[in-house]
Design a protein around this nucleic acid. Structure first.
Length: 870
RNA sequence: GGAAUUAUAGCUCAGCUGGGAGAGCAUCUGCUUGACGUGCAGAGGGUCGGGGGUUCGAGUCCCUCUAAUUCCACCA
C-alpha cells in the first residue's frame, strides 16, 4: 500500500490491527546488540489481580516514549517486562472467588490452594499481555520475569538469609496491624487511615475495695478484656490516692492495678487510661516498662476469645455493641461522646485493621535508611528525582523510618526460609539437616521481592553479563503514590546488596482522576479501564492525551474531549500524509535528495523551522517534559507545516515547473518522515502505518531526527511578510464582508528594499490567497484616499473599496492603532530612558528593545502620515 | 501537628533559568478554497487568589494571608 491509498479518514481499528504481533515477531524490541551503548529500564510489574487501568496507561506510555526514542537514537534499548505475584492482593481475590463457591483456603490446604493461585496467575498474565499489546509497549519479552519465578525466588531467599546473618532481619513480638479478613499482618504503609464517625465510651472500672471506681475513655471498649492495668499520670493530683489500688475489669471478676506512667495525657478524656498491651502499640511499650503480661482477648479472625467471658465467639463489633448495652444496664457506662477519628483500614481487604500482638519477622530499617540518605548526598551515587521536589518526601520518610514487618500469614508468596525445632531457629536457603524441623508457615510481604526487581531480574545474585551491562538501570518511571512502598525499598536493598543505586533517575508522575477531578476508586466505580478508553478513539489518541495533558508530576484529569482532540490531530497528520501521497503519485516522485540549488524561500523557511523544532523538542524530551515537547511539535505540524507550507505547495503543483515539483516532493518527503519519527514514540501505531507506505525500513528502528545544519537558512523568516500580508487581507475581507470570490485591487508599500525584493520574488504566492485583479508593489507614493489601509510590521497595504469604506470607521481604526503604537513606544522608552536598565540589563535585551522601538516608530510615522489624509 | 501541591480566558490546563499573557475545548462570524467540515479563515474573552517585599523590570523569586487537594505523624 502506498501513501496515496490512505483513506480520507483515520480508522484506528484498521491501523492498530496486527501491527504489534508483527513488531514482536521482527524482534524490534529485543535488546542485546553489544555494539551499541546500553539503555535499560524495568517496568513496574503490574499486579496479576485485574485489568490495566488508565494509571497503567500513563505509567507505561511514558516509559514507551522514553525507550522508543532511545532505540531510535541508536542505543541498545532494553525495557524489561514482568509481573508481580502481589501476595496479599492476589490471595484476597482468589479467596473471594473461592468463598463464592463456599470454599475456604483451609478446606483446600496449602498445596491445592497454591495450584488455584497459579491458575489465576496464568489467566491474568494472558490478559495483561493482551493489554500490553494493545498499548503497543516495546517490551523485550525475551527477558520477561515474574516475581515468583525460580530465579527471583532465589534472590529473595539470598537476601533474607544474608540480612538475617547480618542482624538486619529479626523475629519478634510486636503490635502489628492485623487484617482479620485475610488473617495476616500488614506493614504500616498497607494501612489506610479514614476519618470515621465513632464514639468515645466513658466506662467506670469499679474499685475492688469499696464504692465507686475510675472512669476511662476508650474508642474500643471490647479490648478491655485484654486490660492489665489502668494508668494515670504520676503528677495528676486528682488520682494520687488511687495509684496502687485495684479495680475490676467491668463484667469480669478479674482485678487489675492502677499504675502511674508519664505517657498519660492529663488533658485528654478523664486522665485515666486502660492498659491493653496486646492490642495497642503504646500500651505495649507501657507493658514493657512495667513488666506487665500481654493477654490477647481476640482471635485471629476478629472474634472474641475466652477472656471475653460470655462474649466469647462474638465478632468484635458485635461484642462492642452488646458490651456497651450491658455496661449501660449495670450503670458502668457514664457517657458516649461522638467523635470523628482516623481508623486504619486494610489497603487490600478494606476491613478495619486490628492492632494485635504477634510474633513476626521484621527488617531493621535504620542502618539501611542511613546508607541511602548518605548516598543521596553524592551526585555519583544518588537517585535523581524528577520532579526534584519528591526527593524531600523520600528523605523525610527515610529519616523517620520504622522497622518493616515483612511476614504475612499468607500462602501465596515467598515462604519464609526459617525452620523451627523447639526453641531452635534455623534460617537458610534450604531445610536444615536432621529430624523434626518445621518450616515457618508464613510468606513474605510482596514488596520484599519487588524491592529487588531492578537487579534480581538481571540474574542477581549471580554475576551475570546482563547485570554488568544493564545495571544500574537508567531510569525508573512510577507514580508518586508508591515512593514509600517501592522506590525507597529498591533504594536501600539495591545499595545494601549491590553497593549501587537501582537507577540513575526516577520519574514520578501523577495519578489519573476522573472528569470531575475525583481520585479514581473502586467504591466510586469511576475508574475507566484501558480498553474502554481505547475503544472510543484508539489507543494512539489515548496515549497522546494522557502523556501530554499535564506537566510532570501533576495529576491528569481524564477528558473525553481531549482524547477527541488528540484523534483530530492524528487525523490531520493522516490527511497531510494523504495529500503528500497524492502529489507524489501525480508528480511521479520517487525518493530523491533535496536539491539545495532550487529551493525557494518557503522551502528554506520550513526546513529552517523544522530544525528549530527538532532542537526544542529534543530539549524538552531530555527533561521528560512531554507536554511542552508535544506543544512545540503540534504548533509546527498544524500551523506552520499544514496551514502554510502544504497550502503553498498547491501553487507549485498546479504550475508547470516539473523540476520544482519534484523538489517540493523531496521537501515534503523529508518533512513528513521527520514529523512521523518525532511523533512515533507517542503514537506508534499510526506513525508506523503511514511511514511504512513510503519507506523500506520500519520506523521503529529508523534513526531519530537530528538537526541538519545544511538546511538552516539565516533570515529565512523574511518570507513571513507574505504570510502577514495574506492574513491581513483575509482579515480585511472578513471585517468588511468582502467574499473571497470578489476580486480586489491591492497595493503594498514596502518600507525597505529587502522587503520589497522578498515580496517581488514571492509574489505568485499572493495569487492563491488573494483573489486580486490588480496588484502593485510600491516603494513609496502610496495614495490612500478612498482606500482601506492597514499598517503592518514591514509593509502598509491599501485596498480601494470606495463603496464599502466607512471613512469614520477607518479613522477610528487608525487612531486605535496609533494609540497602541504610542503605548508600545512609551513602554520601550520607559526602559531605554532608565539608566538602571541600561546599566543592569543584558545587552541583548537592550538591543532588542532599541530595535523594537525603531520599528514601532516607523509604523507610527506611517500611521500619522495616513491620518493626515483624513 | 509537620510537609507537599494547586489557585492564570466560560471549562481543562501550559507558561523552562524574571524581560511585551498561551493552547485545546466552548462561544460568535464567514467559507462546497484541489488532504482533512474530524476541516478552513477570522473574532471576542484574563486587574495571572488577596496583601506586602526584592528588582530597572514579577504570572515567574521571597514573606504573609485565604481557599482546595494530597501525603506523613497522631491522645486512649
Amino acid at each position: 500500500m502506498k501513501l496515496k491509498d490512505l483513506p480520507t479518514r483515520y480508522d484506528f481499528n484498521q491501523v492498530e490491527s496486527g501491527k504489534y504481533q508483527e513488531w514482536v515477531k521482527n524482534g524490534f524490541f529485543t535488546s542485546g546488540d553489544m555494539s551499541k551503548k546500553p539503555y535499560a529500564m524495568v517496568i513496574p510489574p503490574p499486579n496479576i489481580t485485574g485489568k490495566l487501568h488508565l494509571g497503567h496507561v500513563l505509567n507505561n506510555t511514558i516509559q514507551d516514549i522514553i525507550i522508543r526514542r532511545k532505540r531510535m537514537q541508536g542505543y541498545d534499548a532494553l525495557w524489561l517486562p514482568g509481573m508481580d505475584h502481589a501476595s496479599i492482593a492476589t490471595q484476597a481475590k482468589v479467596e473471594e472467588n473461592l468463598r463464592k463457591q463456599g470454599i475456604s483456603r483451609y478446606d483446600l490446604g496449602r498445596e491445592e490452594f497454591l495450584k488455584v493461585c497459579w491458575k489465576w496467575k496464568e489467566d491474568h498474565e494472558n490478559m495483561i499481555h493482551q493489554q500490553w499489546a494493545r498499548l503497543g509497549l516495546s517490551l523485550d519479552y525475551t527477558r520477561e520475569r515474574f516475581t515468583l519465578d525460580e530465579g527471583l525466588s532465589d534472590a529473595v531467599l539470598e537476601v533474607f538469609v544474608r540480612m538475617y546473618q547480618d542482624g538486619l532481619i529479626y523475629r519478634g513480638e510486636r503490635i502489628i496491624n492485623w487484617d482479620v479478613q485475610s488473617r495476616t499482618a500488614l506493614s504500616n504503609i498497607e494501612v489506610e487511615y479514614k476519618e470515621i464517625e465513632g464514639a468515645l465510651y466513658y466506662i467506670k472500672y469499679p474499685f475492688v475495695d469499696g464504692n465507686d471506681g475510675l472512669v476511662i475513655a476508650t474508642t474500643r471498649p471490647e479490648t478491655m478484656f485484654g486490660d492489665v492495668a489502668l494508668m494515670v499520670h504520676p503528677k495528676d493530683s486528682r488520682y494520687q490516692q488511687y495509684i496502687g489500688k485495684k479495680v475490676y475489669i467491668p463484667t469480669t471478676e478479674r482485678a487489675i492495678e492502677v499504675i502511674a506512667d508519664e505517657y498519660v495525657d492529663m488533658e485528654f478524656g478523664t486522665g485515666v487510661v486502660k492498659v491493653t498491651p496486646a492490642h495497642d502499640p503504646n500500651d505495649f511499650e507501657v507493658g514493657l516498662r512495667h513488666k506487665l503480661p500481654r493477654p490477647l482477648c481476640m482471635n485471629e479472625d476478629g472474634t472474641m476469645n475466652e477472656l471475653a467471658g460470655r462474649y466469647q465467639g462474638q465478632e468484635r463489633f458485635e461484642c462492642r455493641k452488646n458490651l456497651v448495652r450491658d455496661l449501660q444496664e449495670k450503670g458502668l457506662l457514664i457517657k458516649i461522646e461522638k467523635i470523628v477519628h482516623a481508623v486504619g483500614h486494610s489497603e487490600r481487604t478494606g476491613v478495619v485493621v486490628e492492632p494485635r500482638l504477634s510474633l513476626q519477622w521484621f527488617v531493621k530499617m535504620e542502618p539501611l535508611a542511613k546508607k541511602v540518605i548518605e548516598a543521596q548526598k553524592n551526585p555519583e551515587t544518588k537517585i535523581s528525582f524528577i520532579p526534584a521536589r519528591f526527593e524531600k518526601i523520600f528523605i523525610n520518610w527515610l529519616e523517620n523510618i520504622q522497622d518493616w514487618c515483612i511476614s504475612r500469614q499468607l500462602w501465596w508468596g515467598h515462604r519464609i526460609p526459617a525452620w523451627y525445632r523447639g526453641d531452635e531457629v534455623y534460617v537458610g536457603k534450604t531445610a536444615p539437616e536432621g529430624e523434626g524441623w518445621i518450616q515457618d508457615e508464613d510468606a513474605l510481604d510482596t514488596w520484599f521481592s519487588s524491592a529487588l526487581w531492578p537487579f534480581s531480574t538481571f540474574g542477581w545474585p549471580n554475576e551475570t553479563v546482563d547485570l554488568a551491562r544493564y545495571f544500574p538501570t537508567d531510569c525508573l518511571v512510577t507514580g508518586y503514590d508508591i515512593i514509600f512502598f517501592w522506590v525507597a525499598r529498591m533504594a536501600f536493598q539495591s545499595l545494601y546488596f549491590t553497593g549501587k543505586r537501582p537507577f540513575k533517575e526516577v520519574i514520578l508522575h501523577g495519578i489519573i482522576r476522573d472528569e470531575l477531578g475525583r481520585k479514581v476508586s473502586k467504591s466510586l466505580g469511576n475508574g475507566k479501564d484501558m480498553d474502554e478508553a481505547a475503544d472510543e478513539f484508539g489507543i494512539d489518541a489515548v496515549r497522546y492525551f494522557i502523556t501530554t495533558a499535564s506537566s510532570p508530576g501533576q495529576d491528569v484529569r481524564y477528558s473525553d474531549e481531549k482524547v477527541q482532540a488528540a484523534w483530530n490531530y492524528i487525523n490531520k497528520i493522516w490527511n497531510i500524509s494523504r495529500y503528500i501521497g497524492l502529489n507524489f503519485e501525480q508528480v511521479g516522485y520517487t525518493r530523491k535528495d533535496i536539491n539545495k540549488e532550487i529551493l525557494n524561500d518557503v522551502d528554506k523557511w520550513i526546513l529552517t523551522r523544522l530544525n528549530q523544532v527538532i532542537k526544542q523538542y529534543d530539549e524538552y524530551l531530555d527533561k521528560y517534559e512531554f507536554n511542552e515537547a508535544s506543544k512545540v511539535l503540534y504548533k509546527f505540524v498544524w500551523d506552520d507545516f499544514a496551514s502554510w507550507y502544504v497550502e503553498l505547495t498547491k501553487i507549485v503543483f498546479s504550475g508547470t515547473d516539473e523540476q520544482q515539483k519534484e523538489n517540493t516532493c523531496a521537501v515534503l518527503d523529508y518533512c513528513l518522515r521527520t514529523i512521523l519519527k518525532l511523533l512515533h514514540p507517542f503514537i506508534p501505531f499510526v506513525t508506523d502505518e503511514i511511514y511504512r507506505r513510503f519507506n523500506e525500513e520500519s520506523i521503529i528502528i529508523s534513526s531519530w531526527p537530528t538537526i541538519n545544519e545544511e538546511f538552516t537558512y539565516p533570515n529565512s523568516e523574511k518570507i513571513e511578510v507574505i504570510f502577514d500580508i495574506i492574513s491581513s487581507v483575509r482579515n480585511i475581507r472578513q471585517e468588511n464582508n468582502v467574499p473571497n470570490s470578489r476580486k480586489i485591487t491591492l497595493e503594498i508599500l514596502a518600507r525597505d528594499e529587502e522587503v520589497y525584493q522578498t515580496i517581488n520574488e514571492n509574489i505568485f504566492y499572493l495569487n492563491r490567497f488573494i483573489n486580486y485583479d490588480k496588484l502593485e508593489i510600491l516603494k513609496d507614493d502610496l495614495q490612500t484616499e478612498n482606500k482601506l489601509v492597514k499598517v503592518l510590521e514591514q509593509v502598509t497595504i491599501a485596498i480601494p473599496l470606495a463603496t464599502l469604506v466607512d471613512i469614520e470607521e477607518e479613522k477610528k481604526k487608525l487612531l486605535t492603532k496609533k494609540e497602541e503604537l504610542e503605548n508600545e513606544i512609551l513602554r520601550c522608552d520607559r526602559m531605554l530612558n532608565n539608566p538602571n536598565f541600561l546599566a543592569k540589563a543584558p545587552e541583548a535585551k537592550i538591543n532588542e528593545e532599541r530595535m523594537k522601538r525603531a520599528n514601532y516608530q516607523e509604523q507610527l510615522d506611517e500611521v500619522l502620515r495616513l491620518l493626515r489624509n483624513f
